[in-house]
Design a protein around this nucleic acid. Structure first.
Lengths: 208, 208
DNA sequence: GTCTATAAATCGATAGAC
DNA sequence: GTCTATCGATTTATAGAC
């Protein structure tokens, strides 16, 4: 009868079930969106009954909210790791590499956030104007410092970051379109080709 | 009793009602997606009753399908207009201008297509692998021709087009995030800044 | 904790009067 | 064509036995 949902202490088995539900929810929500997905689908994907899923979480919305929150940190980690200590161009190209890798290896997470933001990000609370803005402002200042020091060509750092986000995430979020346009053969190497293209573009652009 | 939905002949009043429904549907579907939106919301936004909306179209899915189809042509027009006859860099920069303008003036259309493709584009039929692929291949060949003639730096034309799509549409699809990160002041000029940034990036990249 | 059963709400669609 | 009334399906959530 004890609620497993939000209490602090949880058994190992409870954590495993919660993790299975998270995994299933990521599958279903990233493919159909919050409203398009049903609890039944999440439960089936997790190998549990619908009522059992409700037992571990309090409802569909809570699964979705906790899922988003649990992925947020991992999602912005690559930008967080961009360091003022490294070589300017290296740091930026490494960031691009990691973002392309994430589009390749974590397309579900990318689509989950994309759908959420596309619909106005009502469940991301005020994380965007606070935490994310602070992080981006911080990194933009580093990049601006590099430009002021003549190590990179002068460009708007915020829009530079936007351009990297958009170009890299495009290959996860709109994968169907990318593959349709490229055709089966060229789709096989789309991530490598994209990474090379974006890096090439940025090298030419950022060379002082 | 005559069905107004799919017959060929329609009165002026019928067309006006249908147009009002389209306009309302674009509002609601672009904000909440197909499943997230209800007929009631569309009807209210159109100033009609739910049953009346059903009378003009046969159901929610049909409104959505016809809406997508009616917007498709307008959506790809800028790329269609990219001409082999013009100056290479001019043609590409003009394309960027028009795409940024569309993000500014038609954000609902952008988000509608984005949501559809994000969820696997089930309702876009096989337009992607046929019509869109043909169009992109055609324009990519033109760009490749310019590169072969030494008028542009050599780059993968398909990924170049993807990069323009992603960078420009980013400002419509993820507008909430863009404004959150930029803050109120800098958001005021986000489209002008974005256009200048993207053009600057492409000029430096495409200069032979 | 997990199950069966079912309540409660939402929503798309239809019937039929006018 | 537009209205009132309502059906039927889906889906979330809860109650209670074990």
């Amino acid at each position: 009868m004890a609620r497993a949902g939000t209490t602090a202490r949880k058994t190992r088995n409870q954590m495993e079930k919660r993790q299975a539900i998270f995994e299933a929810a990521l599958d279903v929500f990233s493919e159909k969106g919050l409203r398009g997905a049903t609890l039944e689908q999440v439960a089936k994907a997790a190998g549990l009954s619908k009522q059992n899923v409700v037992y571990y979480f309090n409802g569909k919305d809570q699964i979705y909210a906790e899922l988003l929150e649990s992925l947020l940190q991992k999602w912005v980690q690559p930008l967080h790791d961009l360091s003022a200590e490294g070589d300017p161009l290296d740091e930026i190209l490494t960031y691009v590499s990691r973002k392309v890798q994430m589009s390749r290896n974590m397309p579900r997470e990318s689509r989950l956030f994309a759908t959420e933001i596309l619909h106005g990000a009502p469940r991301l609370g005020d994380v965007l104007p606070t935490d994310l803005k602070t992080l981006v402002d911080d990194k933009a200042a580093i990049i601006q410092g590099w430009m002021d020091a003549g190590k990179l060509a002068p460009l708007d750092p915020h829009h530079l970051i936007f351009s990297i986000w958009s170009m890299t995430q495009h290959y996860a979020d709109f994968d169907v379109q990318v593959r349709s346009v490229l055709g089966p053969e060229r789709s096989a190497t789309r991530f490598e080709d994209a990474e090379a293209f974006i890096k090439d573009m940025l090298i030419r652009t950022l060379q002082p």
